[in-house]
């Protein structure tokens, strides 16, 4: 599990290339390279841009590490829900 957390952190850091946060281009590269299998539309630049806008809480036009974790957390939650529904566990997601 520590390895998985390290991967989550390192993917961001290597995409940000030493900068504090991810600019549009690097975010797009990260999404296309790392999330292409679980997200549809990663090839569409406008879809990725919309996603970035949705994540950008502080509206600085970049994706901070916290904002990136929001995305990872959201995706992990949806994947987990999909799995438990598929395997028949009735743990209804609460919103």
């Amino acid at each position: 599990m520590e390895g998985a957390i390290k991967t989550v952190v390192m993917q961001y850091l290597s995409s940000a290339r030493g900068k504090e946060s991810l600019g549009g281009k690097n975010f797009q590269k990260l999404v296309q390279g790392q999330l292409g299998n679980i997200l549809s539309d990663t090839d569409s630049a406008s879809a990725v841009k919309d996603m970035m806008k949705g994540l950008d809480d502080n509206q600085d036009g970049k994706v901070s590490f916290q904002e990136y974790l929001t995305l990872v957390g959201y995706l992990a939650n949806s994947l987990s829900e999909q799995k438990s529904t598929a395997s028949g566990h009735e743990e209804a997601p609460k919103h």
Binding site: M1, G3, A4, I5, T7, V8, Q11, G33, Q34, L35, G36, N37, I38, V72, L75, A76, L79
Partner: peptide, 10 residues
């Protein structure tokens, strides 16, 4: 990908 695998393992 590595990130997808990491999420899966969590």
């Amino acid at each position: 990908s590595e990130l997808e695998t990491a999420m899966e393992s969590l």
